[in-house]
Design a protein around this nucleic acid. Sequence first.
DNA 1: GTGGTCTAGACCACT
DNA 2: GTGGTCTAGACCACA
Lengths: 123, 123, 123, 123
Amino acid sequence: MLIEIDFNSDEALYLQLRNQIILGIATNTYHEGDALPSVRALADEIGINMHTVNKAYSVLREDGYVKVDRRRGAVIAVDREKKEHLNRFWEVLAPVVFEAVCKDVSKQELHKIIDDIYDKYNF
Amino acid sequence: MLIEIDFNSDEALYLQLRNQIILGIATNTYHEGDALPSVRALADEIGINMHTVNKAYSVLREDGYVKVDRRRGAVIAVDREKKEHLNRFWEVLAPVVFEAVCKDVSKQELHKIIDDIYDKYNF
Amino acid sequence: MLIEIDFNSDEALYLQLRNQIILGIATNTYHEGDALPSVRALADEIGINMHTVNKAYSVLREDGYVKVDRRRGAVIAVDREKKEHLNRFWEVLAPVVFEAVCKDVSKQELHKIIDDIYDKYNF
Amino acid sequence: MLIEIDFNSDEALYLQLRNQIILGIATNTYHEGDALPSVRALADEIGINMHTVNKAYSVLREDGYVKVDRRRGAVIAVDREKKEHLNRFWEVLAPVVFEAVCKDVSKQELHKIIDDIYDKYNF
DNA sequence: GTGGTCTAGACCACT
DNA sequence: GTGGTCTAGACCACA
């Protein structure tokens, strides 16, 4: 899978990397049990620091997307404890909704944006 | 309006403040044309530094929520240029959707969370 | 002449006032020897502080647009020492030109904007 | 490039710095993609505070002259969306023209000053 | 009294 | 080592 990092973005590199990998899992590019590239290999490939890749992998582990195996490195292993996640999505979405309300973006428009994202990536 | 800052949060103080004020606008606690407290007054009230409040107000201005009136300080003035905002919401929501897909949270569940947020705050 | 002040502008009120009066002189709304309204009267009319009007008049005096007469207040009296002024315009225009060059705005486009301004106000 | 700050000037330090850097871009001293010195390095060099340099860089970013790259600091990246800029030049030049008209400086003389500035810096 | 500017010094996240 | 954030305290321009 092609990882694309935007060095001009405001978003931290490790977060961009994290999100790209999550996108890879979502689009079935990475499958349960697949091993991600080694920290060193991925860092070289993208042209970023090893520590940055390391941080991305750590965050993915904390958020329940990979498990770290001593021999195989980071392995896709998605934790699907839904209850907890729903709370998390609530917290992430609430400030977005507040902004939407201020800017006169309707509930329906937010739904549509979400649907459009699902469509664009064929989820 | 009661501003609540969590000093233990990872989120920057000025961003928490920004979001609280956006919440206040969304819930109609602050109305178009209302003046926010002066930077010094709000800083004293919350117990944070003047410059931190200043930064929050600056960001709110850049994001089109307030204007700075030389006589009255920061005044609520929401810029409702929708076209641009929709792009922004797309960018914010895309990674959320990726996570949802990974975690087996359906499109309908995301819609419901958004609706619940609207309901909770009576938007 | 109608003085229009934009309280939401970033520009200081006294500078807006100064510029409006200069516009009035340029458009022949104010003529050499005319007296400007008293500080108090103009302040009341516009709804701003007396000190602000006072500051505007002081700046106009320093820049050679009015003379202050004890009995008649501020009186239009334009100082036309061209040599000095040309230097001033150089200093004001230089940073504008630098920005133009950076932004790929050509010499001709700057000329045209200036011509358009002359046209718009029938100078 | 030599940055020259006038500590006696009325102009804010961060604005002087901003303008000097814009001059540097206009004169091709800084090229697209070049990294500016780090805030600390430049602050030390000029003998001003880090935060003042930071503010200058922030303004340059807002005005579309640099982007902040997480690894390289501030990098020259000029945004050349002309349409918007032309409005801005209109607003900046209008009061200059008003002054010119008052001071009997002709349209042609303004053009000439602009041309002279272009010539002096070999634009 | 208001925000704007500047300085100084500190800690942290990111690379 | 870089910028980002936060604090503290000061002076000034503006209203």
